[in-house]
Design a protein around this nucleic acid. Structure first.
Lengths: 343, 343
DNA sequence: AGGGCTATCAATAACGTTATAGATGCGCCT
DNA sequence: AGGCGCATCTATAACGTTATTGATAGCCCT
């Protein structure tokens, strides 16, 4: 193996304890010996064996970040923020993709990585409160992107219902009357259920009624799901004049399908997404969407977990992160200031 | 802490060594005791302490994957493949974002994670052969997405020059005469330099000459860089009739800027990208692009590293992964079969 | 001058695992 | 009967680190 504390100690003529103290600064070391040890370290190219350190310290400095999939830009962008923030706190992130599968999510929550991480940040796609209640507390858990009530964990969330309502009201305020929702799920699991509920509330608030034929369930949340899901609606008689999509990827698929069918966005079909992924600014037309503050979400998730790991406080907290409606061309057409403040 | 081997040993009335053998199957254990030990494990909920295991074994089962940034869908998609493939081999991936900064890349290559990973997969954006030659070999290294000659490491690459040439020849074959390249870099570092070279060769092969004003350098490789970079060209006199972009993100930015300026793609401006990110299939118009086989690249990178870690063979290998030109609407307009085989 | 305090360092016991060497019992062969 | 091999298991020494305890020397104070 490589150079160990013991090698440095021999070289510098001190004990391993002293070398350790020089490395960690845990206890004071005389300036002269500190220099001598440091020289030995530099000459021999020592760096501490992390496995040994982790074993001895009882903590690893790893935290797991479990997300549905990296292929979804929203989660990739979120992971990017979280990884950077974790590094600022001296932690290293282990990514786990659940593929949005219930089975994999259960594994993650019940300690798939329990023996190697100090804590877990989890963005659920399928799991509800009941799945979390029987968790034997292996490592501290922070929930993200999701409002799960009555569960004794920290969670970072936005108000999915309110945000969805704002999106639909925006469409209604533009005179749209047949507003579809694309991206519902078979189960009313979170958060798809919440956005559907917000959609319903928004439709009612606009004095309209929900036409069940305008609520489209999709197998997944990708662009192809949006395109395939909306196609029958657009081809059918009595098509919608607006779509609120579960997320931006589905919205992109919807716009793509509209384009293929010769429909103009927003003239024939207005589209609103959810997430404000980078891509949304550059689609043609650019995409009106709900923008959760990803930067805040990612940082908050990490800091909440870190303070849970390092603090003494033990009471679970809820953090509600604000969102904005970012109005772009897919609802109001071109020639408008790029962004305007929302709710 | 949690339950240890010792706890299980006491409960089952055997030695820790026997429990270890039951867990690892390293040495045979009598069926009866094996059952007894397994019961104790199940009852007490034991799982091995990985830090201790890593320390004792001298390997961690971690591999680092260093990429420029997760925000770039190409790398997110590649990481997704690599993570899954690594898991299949019993390895866990640690992601490191270099932001394409030379300094960070040097850190990665010279052992930032050396004390915790068994091996390293590195996708360079700035580093060249000379930066790698003075590497004191801490952990095995596999290079990805890049053809660096005369360096004693495995590398997985596609022929960037040939691919770029194919892209340009495709544009030329459609009658385009003023073909721009967007996404050149100040330094002729890899791989931007290679694609620029392929562009040059392609232009010459078509019997045209390279107009330096049509070669646009950009500060980065994102959508905004493409939009900002191409804007002066499109607004100027004697604009290009085609763009070959360094990557798909830049191509998307170019198409966006064309849209803003009222230019039609492909009629006024044909666009070819590079990477074939998922997004490219759903832009309006959809994006013609060079498609490296990401699936093969990601899997090959992992298997190459794993066989280097576990095999005895020690001779560095080159793997050249094929690419295809995927022709879509951004060069030939609508109503064409979605994909056709390329080079 | 002696006792106590501070500053500095050393010795060493863990942390939980795996690998090596050795112990035990049993059957079988000569 | 005695010894040998096999199957099974135990005892224990590492792996490299950190935290605890203890030792030593120098200094100040009464």
């Amino acid at each position: 193996m490589g150079v160990s504390l013991r090698d440095i100690a021999l070289r510098a003529g001190v004990s391993v304890a002293t070398v350790s103290n020089v490395v960690n600064g845990y206890r004071p070391v005389a300036a002269a010996t500190k220099v001598r040890v440091q020289e030995a370290i530099d000459e021999m190219g020592y760096s501490p064996n992390l496995s040994a350190r982790h074993l001895r310290r009882g903590r690893t400095g790893f935290i797991a970040l479990a997300i549905p999939e990296l292929n979804n830009p929203y989660f990739a962008e979120l992971a990017d923020v979280a990884i950077a923030e974790a590094a600022r706190h001296g932690y290293t992130v282990l990514l786990d993709s659940t593929n949005g599968e219930r089975e994999r999510e259960l594994e993650v929550v019940h300690g798939l990585r329990a023996q190697i991480v100090d804590g877990l940040i989890f963005s659920p796609a399928q799991l509800g409160p009941s799945d979390l209640s029987d968790r034997r507390d292996s490592v501290p858990l922070v929930l993200v992107g999701e409002r799960i009530h009555d569960v004794a964990y920290d969670h970072i969330s936005i108000d999915n219902i309110a945000a969805s309502r704002v999106a639909v009201e925006h469409l209604a305020s533009l005179g749209r009357r047949r507003i579809a929702f694309v991206g519902a799920q078979d189960s009313d699991r979170q958060p798809a259920g919440l956005r559907l509920q917000g959609y319903t509330e928004g439709v009612h608030a606009a004095g309209l009624t929900v036409d069940p034929r305008l609520v489209v369930r999709t197998p997944g949340f990708d662009r192809a799901d949006g395109a395939d899901g909306v196609a029958p609606l657009l081809r059918g008689s009595d098509p919608p004049d607006a779509v609120f999509a579960y997320n931006d990827l589905i919205a992109v698929g919807v716009m793509r399908k509209a384009y293929e069918l010769g429909l103009r966005v927003p003239d024939d079909l207005a589209v609103v997404g959810f997430d404000d992924i980078n891509e949304a600014r550059f689609t043609t037309p650019s995409l009106t969407t709900i923008a959760p503050d990803k930067d805040v979400i990612g940082k908050l998730a990490v800091t909440a977990l870190v303070s849970r790991l390092e603090g003494e406080d033990n009471v679970p907290r809820e953090y509600e992160v604000p969102f904005r409606l970012v109005v772009r061309e897919s609802t109001v057409g071109a020639a408008l200031p790029e962004e305007e403040p929302g709710a």
